[in-house]
Design a protein around this nucleic acid. Structure first.
Length: 762
DNA sequence: GATTAGGCTTGG
């Protein structure tokens, strides 16, 4: 950021908006404070099955060709809604709705893509569109899918936001009688429906009616489960136990090669539907074992919960009858004790000194402790009443932030996971929402090969361990964003007081300040090895990322989350990032160099006449310079009568160097010049105050300096703010400013990062 | 159309 007028002007222009909008959150990501564009978006909900409302000039493109580079202008994407997530309030008034659509025109094409709807469109969509509807989207943008790895769907997302975005609902096959909007639509009988009707109707056997050797379809409520684990054969194995209204409980063993195909069970009480399980007798009990063509779908078990099927099945049928079955099982289960674990979900604040429990939490950081032991640093927004194990981690072993603010740190629990769970933890990423099953709270602290430090043995201590093995369902599961418990957690996090220093504490700043920029790895990375600008940093924000193109269209006051590449940054050296900022007029300027300041002092010194203002205590010091005896100068020293001598001194006629030397001895020096009988401050390009070895500057534009009636001045606290206030100076703030040039596939964006820096300068 | 597993902890 070299000092050029054009650059300064640009900075000035940008800053008033950018200052409000952009916060320094570590250099890895940006929060852009703005609201989603709230333009009304029409959802055409009374389609007749022909897509007649879609304007003719729009061209349909297949889902398979969607790519970040495509031109989305006048393009439409059509697909059947195979999954509809809940309407999520990211922040008050900011809605997000996620759905998955599948290419419906080409049955051989099974590619599905996530569509993300923002703002009012999200709300409309959530009210009007049902699973099974065929929708046509236009005015979308394409973003990289952050969940592609997990959901195995399309590598890109369709993002619908703002007034260009439209959803045309052209068909639906499964009317929801509860939706009044849906009822307004004409009953449709498109090909879709006949296809659905053709699908063989499944019959489900109650659990008290299982005949040995038969292959059946069943519904049940989960009373026990363990996460799938690698069997000694070719498959992963899940074992679970289910029950139903017959009160019989049946053990099930499921073998599937792919983890994806295993039942996605999150908690006891989940509802499960299995197709093609074989009834086998073992130890005089009936069991169910998966057989060829096995498929499974699970649902949340809470009464009134969303009816979101969790399945990897591409072709998946769900009828009104299914809906009823699920609801009936939910109601039935609500009145029955399903197992001890149903009560085992415990927040950190309720952790007992001894016992096992399930913890729903967010992973903030993780670290390898030993070959078979990984530390998970997690939180759920509540504070554990017991002293938790502290773990010392060797440098370079941590993924995610290595330190947090005090406030956040007090909410973080260290969980040690062993063996198979340490192995599983390799795939976890900071920010993931987790449920840790059968976590054990052990009273007292345990040393882990000298790597843990026990606090003084006072009060209650507790260590959280997830021991190896899968007995009692021990395990870890990553919960999806739309999970109701995850939503709850997010709300808790949002309600916590904002923690400004969370990502860049003072100590971190000081560390950066003292570190050559080259070794900072450009600070884009949160990982230890910051070797280049492409290091990835994940953060714990829960907003869906938007593209830069979308961000540029938004109003500049809300929060956005972008995933971008850093193209360039300025300045290259951190000290060059230090600027002066005026809170009043938002102007930004460089700190004047000593040469300029010395010139101002020198000029003022020559003008000075060492006057004696009537309201101050004044004295003079005659200076005879050895080098030129002919020239002597007079330093004027003025003190406020009602202030202690050392507290504030107005120094007249001194050079910069002299001022600096005197300022080393006296606490507050205000350099002045005289005009007639009155004192005046120097040109405000020079510091107006030398205090505690720091120099303070005032805004030329906003200051209205007054150095009269100083006799009546009294200050309760003598600090730079009070002094500036007394003198009519608008105090300039020290700030770090960096300019980043960001890019993604859609656009580039210049971003200014600002952070108040005063407390780090010494 | 073979095989896997068939809950039930204690320890870093």
């Amino acid at each position: 950021m070299e000092r050029t007028s054009t650059r300064d002007q640009r900075l000035d222009q940008c800053l008033s908006a950018a200052y409000r909008a952009v916060y320094w959150q570590g250099f890895g990501y940006i929060i852009y404070d703005g609201q989603f564009n709230n333009m009304p978006v029409e959802v055409q909900s009374d389609g007749t099955g022909t897509g007649a409302h879609v304007p003719a000039h729009l061209t349909q493109i297949p889902i398979a060709v969607i790519n970040i580079g495509i031109d989305c202008t006048n393009k439409i994407v059509k697909g059947k809604v195979i999954h509809k997530g809940p309407l999520v309030t990211v922040k008050p008034g900011k809605l997000v709705q996620k759905a998955v659509i599948q290419d419906d025109d080409d049955p051989s094409q099974t590619m599905s893509i996530n569509i993300i709807l923002l703002g009012s469109l999200a709300k409309d969509f959530s009210e009007v569109v049902n699973q099974g509807d065929v929708v046509t989207a236009s005015g979308f943008t394409v973003g990289k899918s952050p969940t592609a790895k997990q959901d195995k769907l399309h590598p890109f997302d369709l993002i619908l936001s703002g007034d260009d975005a439209f959803i045309y609902v052209s068909q639906r096959s499964d009317p929801d009688p509860k939706s009044s909007l849906a009822n307004r639509r004409r009953p449709t009988l498109p090909a879709e429906d006949s296809k659905a009707t053709k699908a063989s109707k499944y019959t489900y056997v109650k659990l008290d009616n299982l005949k040995d050797g038969s292959t059946v379809n069943v519904y049940g409520v989960v009373v026990f489960f363990r996460q799938p684990y690698q069997s000694r054969g070719t498959d992963f194995c899940s074992s679970l136990k289910i029950t139903d209204q017959s009160n019989h409980s049946v053990a099930c063993t499921i073998f599937c090669e792919n983890l994806e195909d295993h039942p996605k069970i999150f908690k006891i009480g989940d509802i499960i539907r299995m197709h093609r399980v074989k009834v086998k007798s073992y130890n005089n009990s009936v069991t169910l074992v998966s057989t060829f063509g096995f498929s499974v779908v699970t649902f949340d078990g809470s009464v009134g919960g969303a009816l979101e099927p969790r399945t990897s099945s591409k072709s998946f049928s769900f009828t009104e009858e299914d809906r009823q079955t699920v609801e009936e099982l939910r109601s039935w289960a609500a009145g029955h004790v399903l197992g001890p674990s149903v009560l085992s979900a415990v927040p950190l604040s309720d952790v007992q000194l001894t016992g096992y429990f399930d913890l729903t939490c967010q992973l903030l950081a993780k670290a390898t402790i030993q070959n078979n032991c990984t530390l998970l640093r997690v939180w759920d927004g509540t504070k554990c009443p017991h002293t938790l194990l502290e773990v010392i981690v060797e440098p370079g072993c941590t993924e995610g932030p290595t330190s947090f603010s005090k406030a956040k740190e007090s909410l973080i629990a260290n969980v040690l996971v062993y063996d198979n769970h340490a192995e599983f933890a390799k795939q976890l990423k900071p920010g993931d929402f987790l449920r840790i099953y059968n976590l054990r709270a052990i009273p007292g602290s345990i040393k882990v090969s000298g790597l843990t430090s026990s606090k003084p043995v006072e009060g209650d201590h507790v260590t959280l361990n997830l021991h190896g093995g899968t007995s009692y369902g021990k395990g870890i599961r990553v919960l999806p964003e739309d999970n109701p418990d995850v939503q709850k957690l997010k709300r808790v996090f949002e309600s916590l007081p904002k923690d400004e220093e969370d990502d860049l504490s003072d100590s971190n700043l000081i560390e950066i300040w003292g570190t050559p920029p080259e070794s900072l790895g450009v600070t884009v990375g949160g990982k230890e090895e910051c070797s280049g600008v492409r290091t990835e940093r994940s953060c714990s924000h829960q907003m869906l990322p938007v593209t830069l193109a979308q961000l540029k269209q938004s109003h500049p006051d809300g929060s956005h989350h972008v995933r971008v590449q850093l193209r360039s940054f300025e300045p290259r050296r951190l000290y060059q990032a230090l600027k002066l900022f005026c809170n009043k007029c938002s102007s930004l300027q460089d700190i004047p160099d000593d040469e300029l300041v010395a010139g101002i002092f020198s000029e003022a010194s020559q003008r000075s006449r060492a006057c004696r203002p009537p309201d101050l205590l004044s004295g003079q010091v005659n200076l005879h310079e050895e080098s030129s005896v002919s020239q002597s100068r007079v330093l004027g020293i003025h003190l406020c009568p009602n202030l202690i001598v050392k507290d504030l001194m107005f120094l007249e006629g001194s050079t910069l160097e002299e001022t600096r030397l005197i300022a080393a001895e006296y606490q507050n020096i205000v350099p002045v010049t005289s005009s007639g009988d009155h004192l005046a401050l120097l040109d405000l390009s020079a510091p107006f105050l030398f205090r505690d070895r720091r120099r303070y500057y005032g805004c030329k534009q906003c200051s209205e300096t007054v150095l009269r009636n100083l006799s009546s001045v009294s200050m309760e606290v003598m600090d730079e703010k009070m002094i500036a206030n007394t003198l009519g100076v608008e105090l300039l703030q020290f700030v770090f400013v960096m300019k980043l040039e960001l890019q993604d596939a859609t656009d580039t964006l210049d971003v200014f990062l600002m952070k108040h820096a005063l407390h780090t300068l010494s």
